[in-house]
């Protein structure tokens, strides 16, 4: 019974955020364009040698997603802060973690769509051969963005309400994301190279563990963050 109510709140918040985002397409388009631009710049840094590009592809992809994602996280609270809607949202009854879960889902969808565009551009620009183990690669991408979005959505709830949000969010978020980035980059790189050492599955397990730990921690801690 209560689960149904909680789910109702979660999906209402997620739907609201996605509708706001769709109506102002400018946000998504420019963030995705930024991701692709970053890839082009990484191409200048590592290219034009085809083999060097392929070696650097996994790292470049994840950094592009990271930098573009950071912009998305602050945005997801921005609209509500400007109109004072967050305070009103907190007036409604119900558990606080549902607000976080709703925003998590909308950010996850937002970043996944962006990821699709950036990965498509990356395959072309970095001359990637799609490996036969592509389902594993898909799992890596998914687990990687879950980790990214879990902490990104959580820290943005604080950073977006401070004086220096542009610098504070990356400063808090990037050191925390070191395990996600290492695991996601290493797994992607191994899979793109054919996973000769069979190391990808260990990295994927690390990603999974990280996601679960911080998802649970964030759901519990969100109440302390949003109420003050």
């Amino acid at each position: 019974m209560t689960w149904n109510e909680d789910w109702g709140r979660i999906s209402a918040i997620a739907r609201k955020d996605l509708i706001t985002e769709r109506r102002s397409k400018a946000g998504f388009n420019s963030v995705a364009a930024l991701g692709v631009t970053m890839l082009v710049l990484f191409g200048f840094a590592f290219g034009p040698d085809a083999q060097a590009l392929r070696d650097a592809a996994a790292g470049a992809l994840w950094l592009a997603i990271l930098f573009a994602g950071v912009l998305a996280f602050n945005r997801s609270y921005q609209v509500e802060l400007e109109s004072g809607a967050l305070d009103e949202l907190l007036q409604y009854p119900g558990a606080r973690w549902t607000i976080y879960a709703g925003k998590l889902i909308s950010n996850l969808i937002f970043v996944s769509l962006m990821l699709a565009i950036v990965v498509a551009a990356g395959i072309v620009l970095f001359q990637i051969h799609i490996p036969s183990a592509w389902p594993m690669l898909l799992v890596t991408l998914l687990l990687g963005i879950v980790g990214l979005v879990t902490l990104g959505t959580f820290y943005a709830a604080m950073a977006s309400r401070t004086r220096a949000r542009e610098v504070l969010l990356p400063l808090l978020l990037f050191p925390m994301l070191v395990p996600v980035l290492l695991a996601a980059m290493s797994a992607s790189k191994a899979l793109l190279g054919g996973d000769l050492m069979h190391e990808a599955s260990a990295w994927i397990r690390l990603l999974l563990g990280y996601d679960v730990i911080f998802l649970v921690a964030a759901l519990f801690a969100f109440e302390h963050v949003i109420e003050v």
Binding site: Y155, M158, P179, A217, A218, A221, H224, V228
Partner: peptide
């Protein structure tokens, strides 16, 4: 106080 307590705890877990 609230925020830095949360950030400190999450950082330690990490």
């Amino acid at each position: 106080a609230q925020w830095s307590a949360v950030v400190g705890a999450l950082g330690a877990i990490n």
